[in-house]
Design a protein around this nucleic acid. Structure first.
Lengths: 340, 340
DNA sequence: GTGGCAAGCCAAAGCGCTTTGGCTGCCGAT
DNA sequence: ATCGGCAGCCAAAGCGCTTTGGCTTGCCAC
């Protein structure tokens, strides 16, 4: 059933039927009702390819997905996707993933735009002065950044969590417990979220007259193995930390393993606070010692991004507004007062 | 730059240019060269929307993605996606994710087909007599199942790992080490992979005159917490197992925690073998006791699925062929001879 | 009455491709 | 000489929508 057939059986023109269905004003209410009715009864659905050719709108949102032998999409992505799906599901919004290599990202974005494959995209894991954001801004494709960049001379729509405050507060709590040597096991600092976290921790320490020297920082891809290595090298050092801030639950697994391997205990010897993105399959309260965490659901962020993306597509949202969510600090058994 | 302009500047008809570009025979070699040349020089790229309207081919592959408050997309998905991306990347193949609720799956598939959004889809986590497979088969959309169904009276394209053999071999190894009470901590048995695994383990036990009674089986969503609970309840029972087969590395985290909590040791008190889908962020060799695993890269499967999907789209592959991959059994420190 | 205007409808022209159904000119066969 | 066939090209008709630019009709004001 296509427009032609439908309009024919209603003895109306395609124009009118189209307008009626799309809510244009120049159709009488009665006609609109008749049309809507017939459309429903015959299960008419406009052909998206045709609509797309005519309007240039795709009805989909996009994500340019870096892949490659050395690139691991991390498990956070799937949580984000769940959230996105939660919203998109109810709105018949589909998501287009365009795989790309890291070097070809720009090409891929250009292709996606030139092909009008999607009406909007979201950008994840932004870096400082992220070129993707510059590009999208200049190409004029609606987009939302999950996270934030830094050092860009224009505003852009984004949603982020307050990583700086989260790690500031976590560090402050450790300081209040009397810790002096606090270490940070961070994600890759080429990404802004890690930069913000380091900044937050550092500010808290400075406020107490302490510092966060490079030798008490590790910055690595967030795997269990890297968590282990980082904790190991920190704790075997000459002045081992009495408390560790860790950027991910997965890394925390390795941190806990390292601490145990060294015959140390949590929180007796080492206090530990980790950031929790809320995975359904790994919960901080189920660690051998329940973990104190800074918590923010990445899934909720995905849902919000989808919602705002939809709003931008329909021009209900237009300003380059940023949204920064506070992060919970959830205290559990993994922290204690410093010994000395 | 569109076809019209390009053909105009070549002083050729759109027909000829189109044919030249698409490799049709009724164009002289010289003309074809000229056209290809000019197209490249001017960066001409056929508008996919137009092509799509004309041909009905979308140039994308699809995945109907179940989401919802109670549905967790699991981290395996992201690995699979990486693999898919590895192939798709080089072939300008994009992936469309259509989120859906569990109940609406059929509707969503029908929509995707009716809209001609994609040229092929892949289906994951099949259940016995999976209705999605029946539906796709009858709708005539090319598809590939990652995994296998059971009890369908027709053949279909799929790629799967040999779950039965994997768990058979793992169980046999434990038997050879003298274990008599072997337990299975499985994924949800509404999915065939879990059924096959149980079957493999059971057959091995039967071959040794032993059995796998229901009280030594747990079948749950594959989270750390469920691994813990399952192991806990098994080991606190009256006749605790001396060896455990576990369907996932994430569950194994919980299993290890439970064993340790009970003051037991691996492999002294309990031998443990887990299935490893090869996550970059969690490796069996890095467990406190390195884990013996049945190993198969889910990422590699994703890559292969994409490859075969592309082959089916281009009609290079047409028969409903199944492909079953063998699984490695990698022995590490987590198994030992049974004590008694 | 006539002009103006708004409401409601329509025919037809795109959107940018693919594909059908020719048409032309040249060659070898008859 | 004539004809059939083939290689190589083309004009035009889709694909199924949206949108532009009218065209009626009825009503009100003057």
């Amino acid at each position: 059933m296509n427009l032609k057939q439908l309009s024919h059986m209603l003895a109306l023109s395609q124009t009118t039927v189209s307008r009626a269905l799309n809510g244009y004003p120049e159709v009488s209410e009665e006609t609109r009702r008749r049309v809507a009715d017939a459309a429903k009864r015959h299960g008419y659905r406009p052909n998206p390819s045709a609509r797309r050719l005519a309007t240039g709108k795709a009805g989909m949102i996009g994500y340019v997905m870096p892949t490659g032998a050395s690139v691991d999409i991390d498990p956070h992505f799937v949580e984000f996707l769940s959230g996105l799906g939660d919203y998109a599901r109810g709105h018949e919004l589909d998501l287009v993933l365009s795989p790309t290599t890291a070097d070809d990202e720009e090409t891929t974005y250009r292709r996606v735009v030139a092909n009008k494959q999607v009406d909007a995209v979201y950008v994840s894991s932004p870096r400082p002065a992220d070129r993707r954001i510059v590009l999208l801004n200049q190409l004029g494709l609606p987009f939302i950044v999950h996270g934030r960049s830094e050092g860009l001379d224009f505003d852009y729509a984004h949603i982020d969590i307050d990583n700086e405050a989260a790690f500031h507060d976590a560090a402050r709590l450790l300081l209040q417990l009397g810790h002096k040597r606090i270490a940070l096991i961070n994600g890759d600092t080429s990404q802004t979220f890690a930069i913000f976290r380091e900044r937050g921790a550092r500010k808290a320490l400075l406020a107490s007259g302490l510092s966060l020297p490079p030798e008490r920082i590790r910055s690595l891809a967030m795997t269990e193995e890297n968590g282990f290595r980082a904790a190991n090298s920190l704790l075997r050092g000459s002045e081992p930390p009495t408390a560790i801030l860790c950027s991910s639950l997965i890394m925390a697994l390795g941190v806990v393993r390292a601490i145990r391997d060294l015959g140390l205990s949590i929180p007796g010897d080492v206090s530990l606070i980790a950031h929790d993105d809320v995975f359904p399959w790994l919960k901080p309260e189920n660690f051998s010692v329940p973990l104190t965490t800074t918590r923010s659901s990445i899934r909720a962020a995905g849902e919000r991004v989808a919602e705002r993306l939809a709003a931008r597509i329909s021009r209900q949202e237009t300003e380059p507004r940023g949204e920064v969510w506070p992060v919970d600090l959830v205290v559990r058994a993994s922290i204690a007062t410093a010994k000395n």
